[in-house]
Amino acid sequence: GTVKVQGITIKVPNPDKAYKIAKKLAKKYNLTVTRKGNTIKVE
């Protein structure tokens, strides 16, 4: 899958794990995490 952070896309082998990490970071930096299948977008 991929993770998008402010325009940066990161390929990740485990979208579930990445999503959990993204959620933690999002809370810390007051961002929104959206997930569509293997693509995770943080904005």
Score class of each variant (00 low, 15 high):
Lys23Cys: 15
Ala26Pro: 00
Arg35Pro: 02
Thr34Val: 08
Val12Gly: 02
Gly37Ile: 02
Gly37Leu: 01
Ala18Gly: 03
Lys28Met: 12
Gly7Val: 10
Val5Gln: 04
Ile10His: 02
Leu25Thr: 00
Lys41Ser: 12
Thr32His: 08
Lys36Asn: 10
Asn14Gln: 02
Pro15Cys: 09
Asn30Pro: 07
Leu31Asp: 01
Val5Asn: 05
Ile21Pro: 00
Val33Ala: 02
Lys28Asp: 03
Ile10Leu: 06
Lys23Phe: 09
Val12Gln: 01
Arg35Tyr: 10
Lys27Trp: 05
Pro15Phe: 14
Gly7Met: 06
Thr9Glu: 07
Ile8Asp: 01
Val33Lys: 01
Pro13Asn: 12
Lys20Glu: 14
Pro13Trp: 14
Asp16Asn: 10
Lys27Arg: 08
Ala26Tyr: 11
Ile21Ser: 02
Lys23Asp: 02
Thr32Ile: 13
Lys24Ser: 10
Lys11Pro: 09
Tyr29Ser: 02
Val3Ile: 13
Tyr19Asp: 01
Gly1Asn: 06
Ile8Ala: 03
Asn30Gln: 06
Lys20Met: 11
Asn14Gly: 02
Ala22Pro: 00
Thr9Leu: 13
Gly7Glu: 04
Ile8Tyr: 07
Leu25Trp: 12
Lys20Asp: 11
Lys20Leu: 10
Asp16His: 10
Val5Glu: 03
Lys4Arg: 07
Leu31His: 01
Lys20His: 12
Ile40Thr: 02
Leu25Gln: 00
Asn38Ala: 05
Gly1Pro: 06
Ala26Gln: 05
Thr9Trp: 11
Lys17Glu: 11
Gly7Phe: 11
Asn38Ser: 07
Thr9Ala: 09
Tyr29Thr: 02
Val42Arg: 00
Gly37Met: 01
Ile8Trp: 08
Val33Met: 02
Pro15Met: 14
Gln6Asp: 11
Gly37Phe: 04
Ile10Asn: 01
Glu43Phe: 13
Val3Phe: 08
Gly7Thr: 08
Leu25Cys: 14
Ala22Arg: 01
Lys27Ser: 09
Val5Lys: 05
Val42His: 04
Ile8Val: 09
Thr9Gly: 03
Lys4Ser: 13
Ile40Asp: 02
Asn38Glu: 07
Thr2Ile: 13
Gly7His: 07
Pro13Phe: 09
Ile8Cys: 15
Tyr19Val: 02
Thr9Lys: 09
Ala18Cys: 14
Asn14Ser: 08
Ile40Lys: 07
Ala26Met: 07
Ile40Trp: 04
Lys23Thr: 11
Ile40Met: 02
Val3Gly: 04
Lys27Val: 07
Gly37Asn: 05
Thr32Phe: 11
Ala26Lys: 04
Lys17Met: 10
Ile40Glu: 02
Lys17His: 08
Ala26Thr: 00
Lys23Leu: 15
Lys24Met: 12
Lys4Pro: 07
Lys23Tyr: 07
Val33Arg: 00
Thr34Ala: 06
Lys28Trp: 15
Lys17Val: 13
Val33Asn: 00
Lys36Arg: 12
Ala18Tyr: 09
Thr34Glu: 04
Ile8Lys: 04
Lys23Gln: 11
Leu25Ala: 03
Thr39Arg: 05
Ile10Glu: 01
Lys17Ser: 08
Gly1Ser: 07
Lys11Asn: 07
Val3Asn: 07
Tyr29Arg: 01
Tyr19Glu: 05
Leu31Trp: 08
Ile40Cys: 15
Val42Lys: 11
Ile8Gly: 03
Lys28Gly: 03
Lys24Phe: 14
Ile21Phe: 12
Lys36Asp: 13
Gly37Cys: 09
Ile21His: 02
Asn38Leu: 02
Val5Ile: 13
Thr39Leu: 10
Leu31Ile: 07
Gly1Leu: 12
Ile10Pro: 01
Tyr19Cys: 11
Tyr19His: 04
Gly1Gln: 07
Ile21Gln: 02
Glu43Trp: 13
Leu31Met: 09
Lys4Asn: 10
Gly37Pro: 03
Pro15Arg: 08
Pro13Gly: 10
Val42Ile: 14
Val5Ala: 04
Tyr19Thr: 00
Lys17Trp: 14
Leu31Ala: 06
Pro15Ser: 08
Gly37Val: 01
Gln6Thr: 11
Val3Lys: 05
Ala18Asp: 00
Ile10Met: 06
Thr34Asp: 02
Ala22His: 01
Asp16Val: 07
Val12Met: 06
Lys28Pro: 01
Lys11His: 13
Gln6Pro: 07
Lys24Gly: 06
Thr32Val: 14
Asn14Lys: 03
Thr32Ala: 06
Lys41Ala: 07
Tyr19Ala: 02
Asn14Ala: 04
Ala18Ser: 03
Val5His: 14
Val3Ala: 02
Tyr29Val: 06
Thr2Gln: 10
Ile8Glu: 00
Gly37Trp: 02
Val5Cys: 15
Ile40His: 08
Gly7Gln: 07
